[in-house]
Amino acid sequence: MTAMRREKPRLQEPMGTPAYDQWMTPDGEAKAGFYRTSGGILVRFYGEADFEISDNGAVRCSPALGADQSIAENLFANAIKPMLANYNGGLNLHGSAVADAQGGLAFLGQSRSGKTTLAGACGGAGMAFVTEDVTELKQDSGQSQRRYWLQPKAPELRLFADSAQHLLGAAADDWDEGAKHSASLNPDMAVQNTPVPLRAIFLLGDGSAQAVQITLLTSQNALSQMLQHSFVLDVEDKARLKAHFARLADLAMDVPCFALDYPRDYSALPQVIAAVRAAALESPVQ
């Protein structure tokens, strides 16, 4: 298991060398930069924290001076750990997941695309909550047909204030509207505590649809879209990237993948949930 050693907060001094990769927000702002160091890789979340990952996989975190100290823990859990897991052969995607008796449904998408809100709403509609923000999949190894198992995570949602108020009735009046906050699930929401087989993947659009739209994707399209939602530590490590690409290709061929878009209006969520469940049920088992 990957552990993090926490250092004292420090000023984020200029790195001196250009980043070999960057994560951008949907608004086009640089969220994080990836730098090579003499001992490994430094991932800098601008204004938030530096993570130094040594060649042997050890992680040291230095929160940025003045940053909220809880951010480092969240970045470690929701970005660094999945990147390291994928680097070592795992399959972690940026998304949330829920389950019912027919299996698990994963919602993948960009930041602020509504993944967590949709998963939370599914929880309110009787489905079990599986995971939020990071969807970890483990593959069956002993069967002729590959199956993927969603791994449950701590029952907590990271939400913006408006979604928290809508889904959980959380007292979020004093929350910073531009930042996500952690909120516990309502006690009446079911929680999936054991791995559950993945039934379908939904790739969330940008919310421009005027009504609920669900389209079954070809495996090729699903693969190209899933690439945008995976966690890659070193885009220059061709051997690892090739292996990761192959794992995603298998997933795209083995599990039905849908493009999903809908108006980002809370009142539309029941209709979205019904449509998603119907699509998953009707989809061919590949």
């Binding site: 693969l223 690409f245 290709a249 795209a252």
Partner: peptide, 11 residues
Amino acid sequence: VVSREVNGEAV
């Protein structure tokens, strides 16, 4: 370039 055949077509 890395490639993978997916249902008979290369990505």
